[in-house]
Amino acid sequence: MSKQLVITSSPHIRDKETISRIMWWVVISLIPAGISAVWVFGLPALYLIVACVVSAVLTELACQKVMGRPVRIGDGSAVITGLLLAYNVSAGLPLWMAVLGSVFAIAIGKQVFGGLGRNIFNPALVGRAFLMASFPAYMTRFYVWKDGALVSQATPLTVVKMGGVPAVTYKTLFLGNYAGCIGETSVLALLIGALILLWRGYISLHTPLSYIGTVALMTWIFGGKAGWFSGDWLFHILSGGLMLGAWFMATDMVTSPITKKGQVAFGIGCGLITSILRLWGGLPEGVSYSILIMNAFVPYLDNLFRPRRLGERRRWI
């Protein structure tokens, strides 16, 4: 009995694709946004990214050692969590807070459930929600990098929430040279990454398009001051964390629905909650929260849009 017989369920397909291969491609697709982050927010952004990634990987290692599970830090999933968390915070966040968020994301968001593939919520977003609840003052003060120093500046969405008119052009929003979370500002960089994921076939258009489309529709209908159907929908889909969330976090394989119909429903749900929070909520932005909340409904979406045997009744509970 030196060699154990491994029994797995069907389908038995041989493929070169492995979990770690997918994960490292996702890491590559996140690099353009990282470059943009350092370009817009300077060295503090680089420090944040390094701190989050290193602490995420170390936490993963520590958890797997303590729990006596096989060490799998080479699969790159912790690197993704660290990157996404760093992209979701302000450049002025003290490093130790970012590290704490990273530890929380991996330990409570993922390893408590037994590791990759078993978690319910997106770990990076769990980390971000933890930081938002714990250090709200640091998480909602945003900066830009000017002449070698961080200068405090309100995000366009904050300006809108306060009732003002943001002084940014669509081009600025597209290129990303304005205040916000470090990885979310450059739509261009995020779209390059999204194209890589689409080309590799790791994500489909279902979730991102239904998500972004819903936000555009909702903000167009309800977002304007001059009555219905007068909202600046282009501004809303270019600003905030929508692009980062829709392409990279709502498409997370573990925490989003399996079926295409389910993914569309997931995207629409995220879009509705994001729009409601942006237009009527207490915070200027709601992308990360809306994805977290929809994560909780994934078991229902999976069940509802599961392919059924002929004649099987649809049951929601």
């Binding site: 704490l100 409570i108 408590v112 933890f130 609840a133 714990s134 250090f135 709200p136």
Partner: peptide, 22 residues
């Protein structure tokens, strides 16, 4: 000492009890 506010809030209560049970 910079307090980690989350522990004073409802999610913190659930978390601490959960960890204690573990």
């Amino acid at each position: 000492f910079v307090p980690v506010l989350m522990f004073a809030l409802p999610p913190g209560a659930l978390l601490v009890l959960g960890l204690l049970l573990i």
